[in-house]
Amino acid sequence: MRDVAILELKEVTKKFGGLTAVDSVDLKVGENQICALIGPNGAGKTTVFNMITGAYQVTSGDVIFCGESICGKKPHEIVKLGIARTFQNIRLFKSASVLENVMTGFHCKTKTGMFNVVFRPGMCRREEAETRQKALEILKFLGLDNVKDNEAGSIPYGHQRLLEIGRALATSPKLLLLDEPAAGMNSQEKKELVETIRKIRDTYNLAVLLVEHDMELVMGISENITVINFGRRIADGTAEEIQNNNDVIEAYLGRSED
């Protein structure tokens, strides 16, 4: 792992009543790295994402982003600091258009408010045109520009997943969290997704942390992999190290093979 960690989880724990969903997990993502967080269903992966993004408060432990603790910050503040995410169950603004979804992502980078639409209409019009332009660029980048005026909820499933990535990119993240981005995609779409994720990392110059069940995809793309089971970290390392780790084989790979 590189020295400069953009994200670092230190013994992060989340309890729901009596259930410890995440138990003292450590995790590091380096600048510009593509990392993965894997584990069987219910292992606590989404809960980890929810703690990083501020959707859940940590029970104990600390989340460090760019050298600063972000625990206790509101989700929208964390987005502004540079962490964006997608959702395991797609959560688009369904009845808004594809373009509007991405434009909404520019919220924290723009200023137009309730008063300056009246008092500074020129500034607002310029900002609006700029937002539209940048949103279109993202759609073009993801190959969604031909459906820009469609209702977001009406485009094919795979496209909706890409659109969520587009909306996240609009917030200019330094770290992109992808929660099962390949779920529901066919093998061709998955191949394209791998390319897209790499291209995103290089073009937008960001780090990626992804949760994914497709092992081929995870092993092919990740520089570092963290494995959790029942909320505990059981392994951490490169794809090769993970594939040869007995605990992992027992907990996860073994099960998926029978």
Binding site: T53, A55, K74, P75, H76, V79, K80, A84, R85, F87, R91, L92, F93, K94, S95, A96, T104, G105, H107, C108, R167, A168, T171
Partner: peptide, 10 residues
């Protein structure tokens, strides 16, 4: 459309 997704979009 989605309260929480809105918050998590900044």
């Amino acid at each position: 459309e989605d309260n929480e997704a809105a918050e998590l979009t900044g």
